[in-house]
Amino acid sequence: MKIAVLIKRVPDTASVFAINPDQKSVATDKLKFVMSPYDEHAVEEAIKLKEANGADVVVVSLGPDSAKEVMRTALAMGADEGLLVTGAGTDSLTSKGVAEALAAAVKSIGAELVFAGKQAVDDDASQVAERVAELLEMAHASVVTKFELNGGTAVVNREIEGGSYTLELPLPAVITIEKGINTPRYPTLPNIMKAKKKPIAEKSLADLGLSAEALAPGVVLESLSLPRQNRRNHIIDGDTPARVNELIRLLKEEEKAL
């Protein structure tokens, strides 16, 4: 069985963030990058499955060459190989384009099971894995806190408000993983040495039969800004209708929130 794990290289959330003067990108030179924490749980779940049932675990990522650093970490945890989608046109994609590229990558390796973190901690979009499932016409369950393989069926628990429910999915399937499911192992030193020798294949969009134009986002990024640090408060006086009107005016005109 082949398991693909979608992983993303993201800035460590403990980093100090700055926006570039163009206000459209984050300054990356002082950021420390790590594997998105939810993805670590996804890698762990795949390796546990491999240890229990035997499987080939392929970590799949999209990004610059430096994304290999986090892929190596996954290999040092016990994954078998990597596939990186990289090169021209991969740096400006939104969730839609990333999903199309990753779907093509997953298809190229013939994975029956795809794990991913429930979201990436940089953009929190929670879209890529779901889109991959749609594109590949695979069954899908998100925010999974328990996973079991029962023959050709996956049995999972999903977190919902105030409880959880159990789903059965036919394979192939895409599963996104929530934190509580397991404790990701630390890479071991022997595995760090082995990881160096494990293969990480590279594919361009063209190799996957895609083009940057076809994956163009269709949305325009207007600007980025950091969360405002200083808190302000307004106490609005008057009777209730007047206060509501004033609140709406403030949200519209001053906060530009509406």
Binding site: E69, R72, T73, A76, Y186, L189, I192, M193, A195, K196
Partner: peptide
């Protein structure tokens, strides 16, 4: 000889 910045970094991080 088997080592490189990659193995050093992973060991350091871990």
């Amino acid at each position: 000889a088997d080592h490189s910045k990659e193995t050093f970094e992973m060991a350091l991080e871990t």
